[in-house]
């Protein structure tokens, strides 16, 4: 049994060495395709999830001074609502904000007093007037004078939007590249079959089973896909880290840690399955011709 396994693996290795250039092309194309499709797809989902945690680009958060009276809050809300480019103004009472936060982070907030001020959520109807509206709101008397009290994250939003667009576009390109990778693996196996026709003929003459003849090619495709998958996981990690560092420097925010093991297993398995399927297809074509 072990002898037979050693034989078929040895045959696959010989084929991989014999077509080193084609093998290299197949592996790198699989790696790039899986990187774009799988890896960046993953980053795309993460980026969208992150974008949802920061205020919308049509939104301004305004924090008010402590102990502001309800009447003043109401009056100021009316004033803001009257500004050109403002769609709506919602008051977020400090007690409500605190209750929500405590609900989300019960351990973190245990034993603490409410540090939140009252706030407005201002929704914009015209994005180009956002800067002027933010400046006008800052000048209102009940608004906290801290520069951070009026939060308008237009630049940050544009940055995140840009990332999402790029990731989405590249992920789509990955589908095309995956198809190209499939064709490359298919061709590599076809060439391997042709170059090993004497070996195959000998095996047929002496009565080797179809499994013994076919498995080396399956292993060859599987190894190409697997290696491509591992490389893709490495590329994804590098990209993830780069984006994480950019986010850290631009937004002072962090992403969840990179799921390295899961990513290696996932992309490795997808690559291996893809490679084996392409080989199987090439073997089927050979069988019918």
């Amino acid at each position: 049994m072990f002898d037979r396994i050693a034989f078929v693996i040895g045959e696959a290795m010989i084929a991989l060495r014999r077509h080193a250039n084609m093998t290299f092309s197949s592996i790198t194309t699989v790696a790039i395709a899986l990187y774009l499709l799988g890896g960046l797809g993953f980053a795309y989902v993460r980026a969208i999830a992150f974008a949802e945690t920061i205020p919308s680009k049509f939104e301004i958060r305004v924090f008010l001074k402590d102990h502001t009276k309800a009447a003043d809050i109401s009056e100021t809300a009316k004033a803001i609502r009257g500004m050109p480019g403002v769609a709506s103004v919602n008051w977020i009472p400090r007690a409500k904000a605190w209750a929500k936060y405590r609900n989300e982070h019960p351990r973190l907030t245990q034993g603490l007093d409410n540090p939140f001020p009252d706030a407005y959520k201002v929704t914009l109807s015209q994005l180009d007037k956002a800067t002027a509206i933010a400046d006008n709101i800052r000048s209102l008397p009940i608004v906290d004078q801290d520069p951070e009290s009026v939060q308008y994250l237009a630049d940050e939003q544009r940055f995140v939007d840009g990332i999402i667009k790029v990731l989405g576009g590249l992920s789509s390109l990955g589908i095309l590249l995956l198809a190209i990778a499939g064709i490359l693996i298919f061709n590599t196996i076809r060439i391997a079959i042709i170059s090993r026709r004497t070996e195959i003929r000998i095996m047929q003459l002496v009565g080797a089973s179809r499994l013994t003849m076919g498995v080396p090619f399956l292993i060859e495709g599987l190894l190409q896909g697997l290696t491509g998958g591992f490389l893709a996981a490495l590329f994804v990690w590098a990209s993830y880290r780069t984006i994480e560092l950019r986010l850290l420097s631009t937004l002072n925010a962090t992403w969840p840690p990179f799921p390295a093991v899961n990513m290696i297993l996932l992309l490795g398995a997808v690559g291996a399955t893809f490679g084996a399927l392409c080989s199987l297809l090439a073997l089927q074509v050979r069988h019918h011709t």
Partner: peptide, 22 residues
Amino acid sequence: ALLPRKKVWENVAYAMRAVGHT
């Protein structure tokens, strides 16, 4: 139908291995 890169004994051995001989 001999394998040019294998020696005489390897050609025979290859065929034997292909049919599952240890």
